[in-house]
C-alpha cells in the first residue's frame, strides 16, 4: 500500500525537495504551505504520516502538532518534525507538543525515508 505523506513547510524549496525525494521513495506526497494550510489539507488528504517544519508563518509547527493531537482520531498519527534547529529545547518542545520524531535539515534522502519508515507501519 502506498503511504500518504502530508509535508508542511513554508519554503518552496523544501517542499519541492520533499515532494521529489518522497515520490522517488514510493510515497504519495501532498504539500502544504504553512500550518493553517496544513491543517486544512489534513482532513482531505488523510495522511499516514505528517512531516512539518517548525518555523512557519500563521501557525508554527508546534501549533500544528498540538492542533492535530487535540483530535482524538489523530492521537496516534505519526508526525515528524523537520527543522534545521539543532537545539535540544526545540526538540523537547516538539515532543511535548506530541511530535513522534524529527529529521534535521539538511536531510539526505535515505535519512528522511528511514525516519518515516521507522514510525510507520507500511
Amino acid at each position: 500500500m502506498t503511504l500518504k505523506v502530508l509535508a508542511i513547510d513554508d519554503s518552496k524549496t523544501i517542499r519541492e525537495m520533499l515532494r521529489h525525494t518522497l515520490s522517488q521513495g514510493g510515497f504519495e506526497v501532498h504539500v502544504a504551505d504553512d500550518g493553517v494550510d496544513g491543517l486544512e489539507k489534513l482532513e482531505c488528504v488523510g495522511p499516514d504520516v505528517v512531516i512539518t517544519d517548525i518555523n512557519m508563518p500563521r501557525l508554527d509547527g508546534f501549533g500544528v502538532i498540538e492542533k492535530i493531537r487535540s483530535q482524538k482520531v489523530y492521537s496516534a498519527l505519526p508526525i515528524l518534525v523537520l527543522t534545521t534547529e539543532s537545539a535540544q529545547d526545540l526538540k523537547e518542545r516538539a515532543k511535548n507538543s506530541g511530535a513522534t520524531g524529527w529529521v534535521v535539515k539538511p536531510f539526505d534522502d535515505e535519512k528522511l525515508i528511514h525516519a518515516i519508515k521507522r514510525i510507520t507501519v507500511g
Binding site: A76, G98, I119
Partner: peptide, 8 residues
C-alpha cells in the same frame, strides 16, 4: 499519544 508504536 505521540504517535510512536513499540512494535515499530
Amino acid at each position: 499519544s505521540s504517535g510512536n508504536d513499540p512494535l515499530l
